[in-house]
Computed example of a mutant assay.
Amino acid sequence: MNFRCLVCMFLPLFLFSCGNKKENIKELLQVWSQKEIKFPDELIFSVKGKDTVDFSISGKYKILTYVDSIGCISCKLQLGKWKIWMEEVDGESMGSVKFLFFFSPEKRKKFLETLRFENFFHPVCIDDKNRLNQLNHFPSDMTFQTFLLDENNKVLAIGNPIHNPQVKELYLNIIQGKQMEQEDKSMHIITKVSIDRSSVSMGSFDWQEEQKSAFTLKNTGDKPLVIQDVTTSCGCTTVAYSKEPLQPGGATTLEVVYKAERPEHFDKTITLYCNTDNSPLTLKISGDAK
Rank of each mutant, 00 (worst) to 15 (best):
S198R: 07
S199T: 08
Q208S: 14
E118W: 08
D288Y: 14
V257R: 14
T143P: 03
I285V: 06
K81L: 10
I189P: 10
K154C: 06
E169M: 07
M202Q: 08
I227G: 00
N173V: 01
I44G: 09
C234M: 09
M180D: 06
D150A: 10
K223F: 10
E87A: 13
L43G: 07
L115A: 06
F144S: 08
K168S: 02
K178M: 02
E88H: 10
V226Y: 12
N136P: 07
I63C: 03
I175A: 01
S69T: 13
G19S: 11
L79E: 09
L64S: 04
I37R: 03
N160Q: 06
Q176F: 05
Q176A: 05
P224H: 08
Q228L: 06
L112S: 10
Q182M: 15
E27Q: 15
R4H: 15
K218T: 10
L156A: 02
K76Q: 05
Q176N: 07
A251V: 13
A240S: 14
T65N: 06
K60Y: 02
P123G: 02
Q30C: 15
E118Y: 09
L100P: 02
T114E: 12
H137N: 13
F14L: 03
G159H: 04
L217M: 04
N24V: 14
S233M: 05
K185F: 15
F147Q: 05
M142F: 12
L283Q: 07
I44T: 13
N24A: 15
A251G: 07
I285A: 03
K223P: 08
I195R: 11
I70C: 10
Q145N: 02
L13S: 08
P280R: 08
C8S: 15
S194H: 08
L283M: 04
N2L: 06
S69A: 12
N119Q: 07
E151W: 05
V193M: 04
D150S: 05
